[in-house]
Amino acid sequence: MLLSVENLTVRIGKVEPLSGLSFTLDRGEILGLVGESGSGKSLTAMAVTGLLPLIGGRISAGSVVFDGTDLAALPEARLRPYRGKRIALVTQNPMTALDPVQRVGDQVDIMARLHLGMDAKAARARTVDLLNRLRIPESRTVCDAYPHQLSGGMKQRIVIAMALAAEPDLIVADEPTTALDVTVQAQIIHILGELVRERGLALMLITHDMGVVAQVCDRVAVLYAGRLAETREAGPLFARPRHPYTRALIDCIPREGMAPGSLTGIPGLVPSVAQYPAGCRFHPRCLHADAACQQVPEARPQADGGSVSCHHPMEADHG
């Protein structure tokens, strides 16, 4: 297993926004990390990439074992060989991920020069090759452009090229297509999927859109208010969601032939960290909640793999 996260718990000051997350991800696999804003998806990404100190957070319990090494136990200096080289991050907003005053070709080149020790010429050749692979037309000309001269979809492809340049084993992509138009989103998702299959990359794809998850992910981890609600393979998860929250998220996406009025959303809001309810954190918004839900549910292993944390998991077939 390339990445194995066990009981990951994160603290920022006095609060504990993430509690006891466990999931795995192997080479050639896409794991979808899904949930509403405030579920802790981006925090999970920061924990895996060792970026928590940036926001004053730390891993207070659990482990993040990457290729046999527990990153959670490493000091900052020893994390550096992993970040950018073996684990790359693609962020949501390509406008802020790129340096506005540097040509985009140079920004991709630097990754190979820094992490693979290539000289300028070899690095540029690699950059051009990468941009071609990402189907950027006139890649040599594009290398000389500044970010503001490129469209949003093009910029996001440059950010992906930067992530790929050092030949990482794992890419963590945090809402990589949320800021993009739908046709461009489809392209980027397609490209990411291809890269995973061709290069045996592992991809952790963070999104709030169950449509995107269904399109491309092999396995899914559903996060709610800092805890894992359900984690299973995509096929069974969508066919028979067992956690009511998973079901509710799926039902938020309009589908062909849906009856008018059947799209209702999830009542209420994700609670803020300071106001996490006791017991199952979803119970105030859950239609199936009863007295038992005052207790924290345990993660129950499922016959078809994965686990569900719910006192009243759903049985019925979906759609």
Partner: peptide, 8 residues
Amino acid sequence: STFAPDPR
């Protein structure tokens, strides 16, 4: 480009 929430 519109994805249904259904891997099938």
